[in-house]
């Protein structure tokens, strides 16, 4: 597994994946820089009791959307490296189990998303400090979970995207699904909390946020099983 991951690590070089990983959190932070920067006095008054909390809450509104879009693109770009010249037939004729190949792609995808979440935490912290919210008041746990908990809750979606992206050469379907989810997600918040599309946001707010993150991970495993089984059995043409 480690050897395949090392190979995959090499292959994503120069494909724009790292750029995407950087641009996602940078964009989210830039939005808040504008949001706060343009009406700084108003925002400062509004969140007077908890400046950091206000910044995080405002950021968190857009994290699910970014995760849907980013996850889709990461999966699709990664799969495309193999699809482009039908490199699957070369890769899968090597002495590696298909499950290991699938697992390696999953690991790489999670790794990239984790880096992105970490960058988001870093950028938001930097922005807060820049605004002078005070280093002593930094809510470390809140800053870490802004990306990571939502990321855990978005896992079923990532598992589905990975499956579709790896299984089908035509990336139109997975990318469409991803974009639709990203666009629709802000408007489904009023619907049932049983809908997985709401989980990334629910994993940030409310008393049961850990449940939603946990439910995300559990459902992701359920989606991964058929995905991996299909990948292991499918004919490579």
């Amino acid at each position: 597994m480690g050897r395949i991951l090392a190979a995959d690590w090499l292959k994503i070089r120069g494909k724009g994946l790292w750029l995407l990983i950087l641009v996602g959190p940078l964009g989210l932070t830039a939005m808040q820089a504008l949001n706060f920067g343009l009406r700084f006095d108003y925002m400062k008054r509004r969140y007077a009791g908890d400046l950091w909390g206000g910044l995080l809450d405002n950021t968190a509104l857009f994290v699910p959307m970014a995760l849907f879009l980013g996850g889709t693109l990461v999966c699709s770009l990664m799969a495309n490296i193999e699809h482009q010249t039908s490199a699957w037939k070369q890769l899968l004729a090597l002495p590696v189990s298909r499950i290991a190949v699938f697992a390696s792609k999953l690991m790489l995808c999670l790794l990239l998303l984790a880096v992105s979440c970490l960058l988001l935490s870093g950028f938001v912290t930097a922005l807060g400090l820049l605004f002078g919210f005070g280093a002593s008041a930094i809510p470390v746990y809140g800053i870490l979970r802004i990306g990571f908990l939502s990321c855990a809750a978005v896992m079923p979606f990532i598992a589905l995207q990975l499956w579709l992206s790896l299984a089908f050469r035509n990336q139109a379907m997975p990318v469409s699904i991803g974009v639709i989810c990203a666009i629709v997600s802000p408007f489904t918040a009023t619907l049932s909390e049983w809908l997985p599309i709401n989980w990334p946001y629910l994993a940030w707010t409310g008393p049961h946020r850990l449940y939603f993150a946990g439910a995300g991970l559990a459902l992701a495993l359920l989606v991964l099983l058929p995905g991996a089984a299909h990948f292991a059995r499918k004919d490579v043409n």
């Binding site: 120069g14 494909k15 490296i81 039908s86 490199a87 037939k89 070369q90």
Partner: peptide
């Protein structure tokens, strides 16, 4: 060792 049909390669590398 195998080479199946059209060559497979990673063009950006």
């Amino acid at each position: 060792g195998s080479l199946v049909e059209s060559p497979s390669y990673y063009g950006h590398l």
